[in-house]
Computed example of a mutant assay.
Amino acid sequence: MEHGDKKRDISIANSLVAKIQLGLPSTVAKLGSKMRFIDQIAPKLRNSGVIRTVTKKVPLTLNVTGIATASKTIPAFGGILYSAGALRQDLSIQDGVVYQTFQDSLVDIDEADDVDVTKKLKFIHINQMYDLLEELLNEVNRPELVIVDTPLILERSDEPLESYEELHFDYISCKERIKHFWKEHKHEIYPFNSNGIKIVSVSSKRFGSVFYGLTSEQTDKYMIDSLVTQEISELSMSLDKIKKVGVKKLLNGVLTRRTRTAAYEFDLLTSDNRLEPQFVRELGVINFHFRAGMRTMPLLVEAIGHKGDWQTESIDQLTSYLISLYTIDQLKALPLPLWYASYGLKAIKTGTIIQYYKSQAQEMIKSEKVESVWTEEVDLFGEDNL
């Protein structure tokens, strides 16, 4: 820093000390203000019906399936190598005791361009999930509930540029896979079949989106749960403060143990429904958040159907099952079958398999094994045509 005609050295250590001493009181004051606002608005959210209590089922009797996905990428050969897997874990629970399990899995390992590989892996995982679901529906003994960790439907933002031909092909293929599944099996799935399998996706996306929907003029049209109008009008006046606090922070603050938000149809959030494919978009998508324990993460639940297809009672029962499937109150806890399925994919997550795959590919390239086989086949094919 220049001071008059002299320069003064300021080390990074001095800058950090100064920033901590000056910035800490300001940060604490802002956090305190946000926490006081959350404490103030939480009772209003409960009284209005936006935050609702759910009862845990004890003892639990349920046949349930979890389908988890995982992937790992490493740079190799000017692009990337990826491994992507999906694992299905079935649990038969009787009076709170797991007495039967079953696993099924799919794995894909290949090379790809390092162009939006995140989207490519998303398409792969959704295809794998629907493949496992289709196998499940062809079985005699089906679960009552299936919990997956991938989206059930794509969004328009997932569509890659057409100039990325291979990635765009993967996107179209994924859309067709989703469309085919719901056309073929819609009649076997709840709510289109009152005795059908419930299929739900859980994730942390669109955090707190329900709060934005509270100010919509069409709230009543898309909200599945009934809300207290007077309380909602007061909440609408606090929307600017909610935005400043942050909807994620608010959701973590107001969702306590064994609670959920009011359920709503996706159309509440936007006048331009941009979900894909169109066939499933027309079936409708409903969302709500829930939290099982004080230390578990709030999660968003996504299920297919319109407001008229789901009722408060069916949402409560679904959430009750989800909460009852938690066995520990930890940050990374998930419903039991989904946790087991996720744990079973540890071999992919660690990257050991893809590193071995890379080393073997390098060895084969060095030894020219593949090239020699191709050359032999080409020569042989050429001789046949002479």
Rank of each mutant, 00 (worst) to 15 (best):
K221M: 10
P277Y: 00
W339I: 14
K57G: 01
Q89I: 01
K369G: 03
L386K: 14
S163H: 05
S92H: 06
P335Q: 07
E371C: 06
S71D: 15
G308A: 09
A42I: 08
S157I: 04
E176L: 08
S26H: 07
K30N: 11
I126L: 03
E383L: 13
T261A: 12
G308K: 04
A112K: 11
V98F: 07
Y212P: 05
Y212A: 09
K349L: 05
R8F: 14
V146D: 10
A263M: 07
G96K: 03
D110S: 00
V117Y: 09
A42F: 08
C174W: 04
D267M: 01
V370W: 12
E371W: 10
P75D: 13
V245H: 01
R281S: 14
L251C: 11
L214M: 03
I354A: 02
K244Y: 08
L133V: 02
T270E: 15
K19M: 08
L87K: 05
E231D: 06
T27V: 14
L121H: 08
A86Y: 00
Y130W: 00
V50L: 09
I354H: 03
S324D: 02
I232V: 09
M364I: 11
L318Q: 01
K243V: 02
T229Q: 15
L152R: 08
V373A: 05
Q230G: 00
